[in-house]
Amino acid sequence: MEAITFWILAIGLIAAAWSVILQRNPVASALSLVAGFILLGILFLTLNSSFLMMVQIIVYAGAVMVLFLFIIMLLDLKTEEKRPVPYLRLAVALLIAAIFGGFFFSALQAVPNGHKVLSWSQPVPHVDAGEIGQLLFSKYVLPFEITGVLLLVATIGVIVLSKKEIK
């Protein structure tokens, strides 16, 4: 059962990812990205990470995507024109991707208990929001606080870079 769910989700995810790149209309691309985010969220759910799923849906499919669509609408982007396919560049890109993918898979196989990582025979421990919160505010409080500073820097940066000229 889990295997079937996984494969359906995985194929859906890959299709959504392809669609993001191949769609010529930016709005359609963005909506494919939403589909990908939601499918990934469901995948997290099958791994017993309900909290991660909620975060994925709220932050990515919700906030980030609305922002994307907003910007696309504001910029009034036109549908991309059809250009000739650069075959040579495509071939080189595919070759590099294939080499990297090969390394990736052999590396994944080599992880201790890697066959278990790849299979679904092992029950996954359930992690809830409370445990993650406990960890964030006890063991990982330092990186957590610094993430706050990071967001502050990003906020200030955006304001500074988009500020209107004052005459």
Partner: peptide
């Protein structure tokens, strides 16, 4: 532990 490909990759 013995080294494996994934560690070198990392």
């Amino acid at each position: 532990n013995p080294l494996n490909l994934s560690i070198l990759f990392a």
